[in-house]
Each structure stands twice: as C-alpha cells, then as structure tokens.
C-alpha cells in the first residue's frame, strides 16, 4: 500500500509541476518570441505579465464549447484526451533527479520502448480529431499529421536505438548512469552526435512545431485538425502540445545531456533536479529560438527529408554504433 501511496503522491506532484510548467511555457514562448522579433510581448496581466496564463486559462474555460453539426461525437470528444494524456504519462519513466525519491518508474527495463509507444498514441488523437471534425481543413491537417509523425517517428526510434545500444539497457535510469564516467564528455551528445541531431530534428517534427508545423499551417489549413475545437477542448490540445514539448526536452536531456548528472549531486541530491530542470529549459529555449528562425518547410520536402535523409542516416548510425561497440573502440564499450 505505501508503494501505491508514494506513486500517487509523486504523480500528483508531477502533474501539478507539468501543468504549471505548461502554463508558464506558453508565456515564456510568447515573451521570448517577442524579444527575438524586437517586440515587447505580453506584459499587461499582472506584474511583467506573469498572470497572463491565468487570464488565458480563464478565458478558455468561459468560452462557449461549440460542437459543430455532423461531428462523430464520441471520437470528437475522445481525441483531445488522446493527445493530452500520452504527453503527461511519458514522464512516468523519466528520472528527474538522483535516487528513487525523484523517480517514478524510471527503472523499468523497457523505458525507451514505452516512450516510443506512448508518443505514438498521441498521433491517433490528432488523426481522429481531423477525421471526426467533419471539416476539410481538419481532415487535411489530420492526414498530414499522421503522415508526418509516422515517418519521423522512425528516425526518432532509430536514434533512440543508438542510445540504447550505448547504454546496453533500455531503462532510462541506466541510460543516465551510462553517461557519467566523471566528465561532461560522457554525455551521449558528444559520443552520439548524429543520433542527437536526428533526435532533435525528429522531435521537432513529431511535435509539429516550426519549421515542421505543416499540420496547422494557418495560411493553408486554418488551424488544421484543431479547426473545429473550441473552449476547453482546444485547451486540451494546446496543453498536449506544450506538455509534449516539455516531455521531448526532458527526453533529450535524459538521452543526450546526461539527464540529472552534474557536479556535487552525491552530496546534495536535490541539485540533480536543478541540473535536470536547467537542461530541459535550455532545450525548450532552443525550440523557441528555432521557431523564431526557420520558415516552414514545403510538405513534399518534409516527407522527402524524413524518408530519404533522416531514416537512412539513422540506420547507418545504428550500424556504425553497433560495430564500434562490437570492436570495443574506447568510449563505445
């Protein structure tokens, strides 16, 4: 029973942190984007605009929740949940700090597999939303989303395979341990730069964020699969998107930036959480910076890039890594 209680408590704290993180991530994104575009950004609600997420949330709660005529009701209502829930439960296996106190289920031995599986479920939410909305823009957006996410998931999975090979374990706790031979060069971003680059690109595509945001290309598709969603249903999609952003950043930090590792974590385990947070925030800022920089790709190029460049390179990377490990090259045993 105490195990169950502990797990519940941790989950509640995790969800609370994630939702707060989501709220302030939206504000951070708007602020940082504004600064990167020589604008001021939101600063009216509360000091420095810090209450902006609260205002946004209240607005969305009080918005009329419209259900358009002709939608496939059960699926229409299920879709936002299918997008939001996987984004949150990915965190179950991510070790956010040193020691079992900061880990929920990170020692399970198929952690990496679990992540790929759970992330895949979110695609259903998007596809179903597009299909059930009875709207051509939504259908096209949903179609694009599934095609895009499926093709980029391949590259992402293969880059994770390289990481798993390096750590010779699919448990995320072991993956973090494997990156700690005492110095920063142990991080997989230095030992697996190709995998790191592929993971970063595919993660951005998987999130459908700029420059891969064809799913909701406003100029062509209004809001894509979200076109017919309003009020809290829209908020759920939005939440799913941003929590997934945090999740992917946490994954990148875990897989390639040494997770919670850093100096003095043995003396003060709480420092590990700080290091992890810093790494996640750095990844998030990088994503926002990317959004401010790169224009949207053309759809056929996007698919071509995924299948003709990323997937072969990822496969080659797995093979080379396997050889290096088999030959026992220093740094790869």
């Amino acid at each position: 029973m105490p195990v169950l209680l502990e797990a519940t408590l941790k989950s509640v704290v995790l969800i609370f942190v994630l939702l707060t993180g989501f709220a302030y991530l939206t504000l951070t994104e708007r602020k940082v984007l504004a600064r990167l575009q020589a604008r001021i950004g939101p600063n009216r609600a509360g000091p420095l605009g810090l209450l902006q997420p609260v205002a946004d949330g209240l607005k969305l709660i009080f918005k009329e929740s419209i259900t358009p005529a002709g939608v496939d009701k059960p699926i229409y209502f299920l879709a936002p949940v299918l997008v939001a829930v996987p984004a949150i439960i990915v965190f179950a296996v991510i070790p956010v700090g040193k020691g079992p106190a900061f880990q929920l289920a990170s020692e399970i031995n198929v952690g990496a597999l679990y992540i790929v599986g759970v992330m895949g479920v979110a695609v259903y939410g998007i596809t179903l939303a597009g299909w059930a909305s009875n709207n051509k823009y939504a259908a096209l957006g949903g179609l694009r989303a599934s095609a895009q996410v499926i093709s980029y998931e391949l590259g992402m999975g293969l880059s994770i395979v390289a990481v798993v090979l390096m750590a010779s374990s699919a448990s995320l706790a072991d993956i973090v341990e494997a990156q700690m031979p005492g110095n920063i060069l142990g991080w997989f971003i230095f030992r697996q730069p190709v995998a790191a680059a592929i993971f970063a690109i595919t993660a951005m595509a998987e999130l459908a964020r700029a420059p891969f945001d064809l799913v909701e290309a406003e100029q062509e598709l209004t809001a894509g699969f979200m076109t017919e969603y309003s009020g809290m249903k829209f908020a759920l999609f939005f939440m799913g998107e941003y929590v997934k952003m945090i999740a992917v950043s946490a994954l990148f930090a875990t897989f390639f930036l040494g997770g919670w590792s850093g100096p003095f974590v043995d003396q003060a385990p709480i420092l590990s959480v700080v290091y992890f947070t810093i790494k996640v925030v750095a990844c998030l800022l990088l994503m926002i910076w990317t959004r401010a920089t790169l224009p949207r790709m053309r759809y056929d190029r996007l698919m071509g890039f995924g299948w003709k460049v990323l997937t072969p390179v990822a496969i080659a990377n797995v093979i080379v890594t396997a050889f290096l490990i088999a030959l026992g090259v220093p740094g790869y045993q």
Binding site: R35, L36, Q37, A38, R39, I40, W289, A292, T293, L294
Partner: peptide, 21 residues
C-alpha cells in the same frame, strides 16, 4: 546559412523593441 540565420535572430534580442506600450 542556417547558423547565420540563428545568429541573426539571436542578435535581435539586444535591439530595442520597435513596438511601444
């Protein structure tokens, strides 16, 4: 070109916003 683009965007942070309150 991608790196130059990123640098250009980052440099904007040091500029005064063109919008006003």
């Amino acid at each position: 070109r991608i790196v130059v683009g990123f640098a250009t965007v980052l440099k904007t942070v040091t500029r005064r916003p063109v919008t006003i309150q």
